[in-house]
Design a protein around this nucleic acid. Sequence first.
DNA 1: TGTCCGTATACTGTATGCAATCGATTTGGC
DNA 2: GCCAAATCGATTGCATACAGTATACGGACA
Lengths: 247, 247
Amino acid sequence: MHTKSCILSRMTSLPSGRRAGKSSLSAAASRRVERPAPLRQAVYDALLELIVNRTLAPGQHLVEAELAEYLGVSRQPVREALQRLQTDGWVDLRPAQGAFVHTPTEEEADQLLAVRSVLETYSAKLAAEHATPQDVKQLKKLQKAGEDALAAADVERLVQANADLHAAVAAIGRNKVLAEMIGLVDRRVRWYYTPIARPRSRDSWNEHAELIAAIADGDAERAGEVMHHHAEQTRQTYHDRKTTESN
Amino acid sequence: MHTKSCILSRMTSLPSGRRAGKSSLSAAASRRVERPAPLRQAVYDALLELIVNRTLAPGQHLVEAELAEYLGVSRQPVREALQRLQTDGWVDLRPAQGAFVHTPTEEEADQLLAVRSVLETYSAKLAAEHATPQDVKQLKKLQKAGEDALAAADVERLVQANADLHAAVAAIGRNKVLAEMIGLVDRRVRWYYTPIARPRSRDSWNEHAELIAAIADGDAERAGEVMHHHAEQTRQTYHDRKTTESN
DNA sequence: TGTCCGTATACTGTATGCAATCGATTTGGC
DNA sequence: GCCAAATCGATTGCATACAGTATACGGACA
């Protein structure tokens, strides 16, 4: 309506300079020529951002036409994005009734944290087995970024750094299926967990340091244990918060 | 074209008598009044069946219009189904180029089997902790069904029984997130693995019996170990086949 | 004869239109 | 005054139409 398509402008800006290469084929080694970037992907990202932002509140009814107008596109890409959001657990799609932002329950959060714990533990083991010196160097870099954010008390950067570190560990494990799953689970966990991210930050990053050390040593067993402890600690904190809040 | 919509007839048959209840609300205790059953879901099921069947071969280009005509629907539900098939890993959706049936690589299969191993192990532990006598009874029933299929050398029933048993174990664990993930992973594993399901059947069902015993005893540790062994054994068999076949 | 370019075709991506369905409100009956 | 039934508005689900893009073919030029 007012700021129509302002949100998408950021996403669609990336293919603006597309097809720049092709002549200097030496430089563009990464990704072909930059594919057309389907609109549904941009819409997906935009909506996900709005959900994580709490701009779209849990339980809220999402009307296709409204979102379409707001994002400056037709209903079609919105529909497709909503359906993918459903399969990823972000919205509930009730037949003939529309999409509703998923409302996380305590039970579900705990289940997610449990699954995350299992997956991350395995991921850490794999990382310890596969890590090269370069990988370790990269991890330490991310660790430093996290501690900087911690010192600056920048919550957003902190959350991002945490996600990056875990993603990096998953990538080192060389198991793409696992990494993808961890990505999905972690993002949802983070959504539930962000409100209480601060109190655990200090401990959390100490545990990260320990984890990196274990990976650097190639000690899979220890890396697994550290990560398991790390994840379970997070789970515990979540429960503590629940208890505290209900008082 | 020829047998237009014959495939969907089976799926769409279920909501044929929809909205029969509402008056006798005592009987329809399960699912409200039977929701309209979106067409995209039927298309998804149909396409998945065709892919698992190998009717649609790996790498094959799926043209939306063709599938739509074949199934007797418009392109819209087909598109939506294809996109969900992508997120579930059954097809690759290349921008502006269309959908291609996913071609499984050895590497990916191994990664899937590894993740499955981790998830199933945890699932078995949870099942051992939560199982009620009724749950155990149900498992034994499924075990019997599997052994019957084994005796009859009915591969299809065997595969189904295997899936049912693992799904039942996951359900007993009372972790929906985990169960859903296992469902996804297992289905894909089965697709890769079905061609060699026979040789391992005997051992596999012996291991199942052992697993059920551990669950019945409420011995989480042992249940986890048995399931881990079971999954790793499957993984090993897959590799053996690979070696054998290359000769 | 081989390569490059232009055109043509086919398919995907997006937008719009129409019918069916759901929820809410209002009206009629008891 | 309260409950049931019918009507109305809003929204989804499906179908169709249009536009953009990639691949394939054919011809011109070196």
